[in-house]
Computed example of a mutant assay.
Amino acid sequence: MISKDNAEHYIWGDNCDGWYLVNRKDMLVIHEKMPPGTSEKRHYHSVSRQFFFVLQGVLTMELEGVVREIKAYQGIEIPPGSVHQASNSTQSAVEFIVISQPTTRGDRNDVPAS
């Protein structure tokens, strides 16, 4: 059994949390938590397809220039090659699951800020 209580934990970005629920070459499943006012860098994955599913709060996802608000129990698929950026523009933390197939290890390409 795996949960964020016993999974390998790491800190990313601006004091955001991540827990590896599945960490294999063919699949990566991460439980992430973003504090209010945080964001990741705009980027894309050449090979990996991702699915973000919000557990708590509201996740703002910019996908190919279109901004969407994803609420609890909603998800969004990110196809390979799609420029995207997750952020939390609310006053509460947001928690979500990210499923990546295959892993995003070595498959992240940051996009310079415009």
Results as ranks from 00 to 15, higher is better:
M1H: 10
I2F: 03
I2Y: 05
I2K: 12
S3D: 02
N6E: 03
E8P: 05
E8G: 08
W12E: 07
G13I: 11
D14E: 13
N15R: 12
C16N: 14
D17P: 09
Y20V: 02
N23F: 06
N23W: 04
N23K: 15
N23L: 07
R24H: 08
R24T: 10
R24Y: 04
M27T: 06
L28F: 02
L28Y: 03
I30N: 07
I30V: 15
H31G: 03
M34Q: 14
M34P: 11
P35T: 01
G37I: 02
G37P: 12
G37F: 01
T38N: 07
S39C: 09
S39Q: 10
K41F: 07
H43I: 02
H45V: 00
S48G: 03
R49Y: 05
R49L: 06
Q50L: 11
Q50V: 07
F52A: 14
F52G: 13
V54H: 12
V54Y: 15
V54I: 09
Q56W: 14
V58Y: 09
V58M: 13
T60P: 08
M61A: 12
E62W: 04
L63Y: 01
E64K: 09
E64I: 04
G65P: 01
V66G: 03
V67T: 10
I70P: 14
K71R: 15
K71I: 09
A72S: 12
Q74C: 10
G75N: 08
G75D: 02
E77I: 11
E77P: 09
P80W: 03
P80G: 04
S82W: 05
V83A: 03
H84M: 04
H84N: 03
Q85E: 06
A86D: 08
N88Q: 03
S89V: 09
T90V: 11
T90G: 13
T90C: 10
S92Q: 15
A93Y: 14
E95G: 13
F96E: 09
V98R: 05
V98S: 10
S100P: 02
Q101V: 13
P102Y: 01
P102M: 02
P102I: 01
P102G: 00
P102A: 00
T103F: 00
T103M: 00
T104S: 03
T104F: 01
T104M: 04
R105P: 00
D107P: 00
D107F: 00
N109T: 10
N109K: 13
N109A: 05
V111G: 12
V111A: 12
V111K: 11
V111M: 11
